[in-house]
Design a protein around this nucleic acid. Structure first.
Lengths: 197, 197
DNA sequence: AAAGTATATAAAAGGGTTTTTAAAAAGATT
DNA sequence: AATCTTTTTAAAAACCCTTTTATATACTTT
């Protein structure tokens, strides 16, 4: 039973933030005019917000032609979102780059995982070192733990659930959660509940 | 008289913006507390404003330890300002880098020059090309002319006076003004007033 | 009439604005 | 009691904020 280490932690991607560029400039006033669903309040924020129902995403378009897509749970849906918006813009007579030139860069991945055991966050805070951790239960029930490699921030909850954010690659989420699990195991803070698989 | 071209346009530096770093972090609240003359309103702006009478400068200090010095008319006064502030901080018991490690980077130079002739800005706008110029006398009396090399913005006034901003080296101001003068001369827009030297 | 305001230019600094998403706990509101 | 909002984390985008300085117009306030 030495090889009891799980292959790779089960991770669920909940949100992807990705950037792209539709053109070298965009006339947001014209777009806001033409697309009724668009939200554009330049006094408040320089980006135009455009929401899609399927995939369920929100994309911010900027005058520079650059854009950020948020809310997708996988890269395919980021791509779909970007191409749907590109088509809408083309239908408006706006010149945008060809689909194959729409380069998508993942900027942030938010994912959850589950350690499978409840955590005593006070013990975890002591174990990981108070200087490496932020834990103020009065303010927020999660304990914040930052990793340098991969560079992510993890929120640990008493339930054993983990939120990981900051990763740019899905595999880094798994690596980060594994590192965390290993550290907690080494500290004897995981109750080793055999979840019967 | 073919070599009537002035060697280098007379330029007066009016303002230098330079950046530096005093430490890897600064406690602005403590500094604001200790230095009564400091202005610090973090809700309004994250930088602490510290003004000196001699040299007459205003320096913005940030939590990151970085700072911007504005108002000096020469680099020596930027250096003086930075060292005076460093000393003040040391006297407060704040740890800052040694003077020789305080690296100063000039970020912007504002300078004036004078073409020696009055300009008809409407003719200048036509001559330089309306697409290369911004001129809305109702809004602002100056004509904006941008150069790519050196990358500066020049404001031309009917009086023949020029404001040049954006340069990082003093010599670039002279180069920019010379380029402008050459272009205007080629267009026959300089009245060649021999100013008797 | 004199002294302010505004208009416009460049540059750095870093915090705010907005969007998304999960976790969970406390508080407010319905 | 059920539903909301707040708290926190990360990330991109591009604007605002503030400081300085000359230039020169119009407009407002003393």
């Amino acid at each position: 039973m030495k090889e009891g280490k799980k292959k790779t932690p089960e991770v669920i991607v909940e949100n992807i933030v990705a950037s792209t560029s539709f053109a070298d400039k965009l006339d947001l006033d014209a777009i806001a005019q033409a697309l009724e669903e668009a939200e554009y309040e330049p006094e408040q924020f320089p980006g135009l917000v455009y929401r899609l129902d399927n995939p369920k995403t929100a994309t911010l378009l900027f005058r520079s032609g650059k854009a950020n897509c948020t809310g997708a749970k996988n890269v395919e849906n980021v791509r779909k979102t970007v191409e749907i918006i590109a088509d809408k813009l083309r239908n408006l007579g706006i010149d945008v780059y060809k689909n194959e030139d729409l380069k998508i860069v993942i900027q942030n991945i938010v994912a959850i995982s589950d350690l499978g055991t409840e955590l005593n966050l006070n013990e975890v805070a002591m174990g990981l070192g108070l200087e490496n951790v932020e834990y103020e239960p009065e303010q927020f029930p999660g304990l914040v733990y930052r990793l340098e490699e991969p560079k992510v921030a993890m929120l640990l909850f008493g339930s054993g659930k983990i939120v990981c954010t900051g990763a740019r690659r899905t595999e880094d989420v798994a690596i980060a959660v594994q590192k965390l699990a290993d550290e907690l195991a080494a500290l004897g803070l995981l109750k080793e509940k055999e979840e019967g698989d």
